[in-house]
Amino acid sequence: MPGKPIVEVTGVSKAYRRGTTLVPVLTDVSLSVQEGEFLALMGPSGSGKSTLLNLIAGIDKVDSGTIIVGNIDITSLGEGELAAWRAVNVGFIFQFYNLIPVLTAFQNVELPLLLTGLSRVQRREHVELALRVVNLAARMDHYPSQLSGGEQQRVAIARAVVTDPAILVADEPTGDLDRVSAEEVLQLMDRLNRESDKTIIMVTHDPRAAEKARTVRHLEKGSLNDFSPQASR
């Protein structure tokens, strides 16, 4: 069940420079995400949802405002500290899976563990467990090109959870998948949220994907609209 806030976004603004023009993307956005929540961020293209996700995940910097994740103000961290923080606290799921093509499924999942102090044997145990969770243990020696889109995304999910991060961020995780594969991926994310209490923040265009979330927030022109808990859940 959702508990205390794990992510607190307060008064965040962000603008990008296009030539000489400064284009505002987020304006004074505040958001709170509870521990164990499954939040969907929806909105039209250019509404700033991916930017907000990137800021929460620590892969972009705010212009103003603060973001506190698990009691750490990540807006005050330097590049190196932020990289170390991401390695421990955030699992990423991308639209295009973003697996390294020359590495096997096993090696792709092992990547984040290289930054930990785990031994080779311990890493193997963690990777095998993560691949079992996504039901791909039998295909661990396959390269991404030998896997379907859905399978690749499941490998990406295994990579995201293998370090047992505090939050999972997913940017259009079903955007490049057919309906059946998308459903499998969403079910997997739902299971991770329900059974493992993973906090998930997902950006999506897809209403079917948003249905899996417990909470949906809409972004429009850089501002968050009202809170919409999922009645059915």
Binding site: E79, A83, A87
Partner: peptide
């Protein structure tokens, strides 16, 4: 660049 961005996202430093 995309792959390096992924690695950086995962926490790999410069």
């Amino acid at each position: 660049f995309g792959e390096y961005a992924v690695l950086k996202t995962l926490g790999f430093g410069g």
